[in-house]
Amino acid sequence: MTAETGAAPPALEVEGLRFRYPDGTPALDGVDLVVAPGERVALLGPNGAGKTTLSLHTNGLLRAESGTVRVVGVELDQATLREIRRRVGFVFQDAEDQLFMSRVRDDVAFGPANHGLRGAELDARVDAALAALDVTHLADRAPHHLSGGEQRRVAIATVLALRPDVLVLDEPTAGLDPASRRDLIGVLQGLDVAQLVVTHDLALVLELCPRTVLMDGGVVVAEGPSRELLADAALLAAHRLESPPGLAPAPRG
């Protein structure tokens, strides 16, 4: 499960990314990360590790001091910003930040319409995204009247409608009840798109992401198959994380 498979460029490629917040706090100190086409990668780390900062760089919401972000081979710069934003579907942690139109359908249409789709083509795109997230029945509802789980799925539909090459999800299961969480995992597993999942939900990582990247202090401190990495109790403890119950202390064969 590495990126060096054939000619297809990685869905997402981050190289030597450095970033400091305006007050001087260093947040990213040379981060390298690769997500292959169709691959699902978990981005783990304690609070303040730089996970969200990194994810905000993937579609140019933050701009690095140095280093590059490439999406399917296209390097992020001022000229490609718009294209990158279409190719990277960014799902915010708080779905209420993402949903602002008066109807679910309009919210899902917002992205593709910004990119020039109109009429029947736009409708088809919206219908497909709603169906993929199993929220077709919510199309005419007001987003702020939906439950947390419904909002989360609609939020994902709003970026899926852009047909992104990679989905970046910030804490997708935070605040969801077990059934909503289960539904969401099922939906994410069914999507044929590369995913970078920023999370603290280690059980989610085991189910959804074969590979894990562990960040702390603005750098990548470990990466590897999720089962092995999450079974390394010492490594996790050193970075303020805990092995999920049933996996520690030793990896199962």
Binding site: F92, D97, F100, D106, G111
Partner: peptide, 22 residues
């Protein structure tokens, strides 16, 4: 801050300052 996040979410979906015709 919340407004900023909403705005960022709009930018992330290609908002250029004009509401699209839906």
């Amino acid at each position: 801050e919340r407004g900023e996040r909403v705005h960022a979410a709009m930018l992330a979906r290609g908002f250029t300052g004009r509401m699209p015709v839906l």
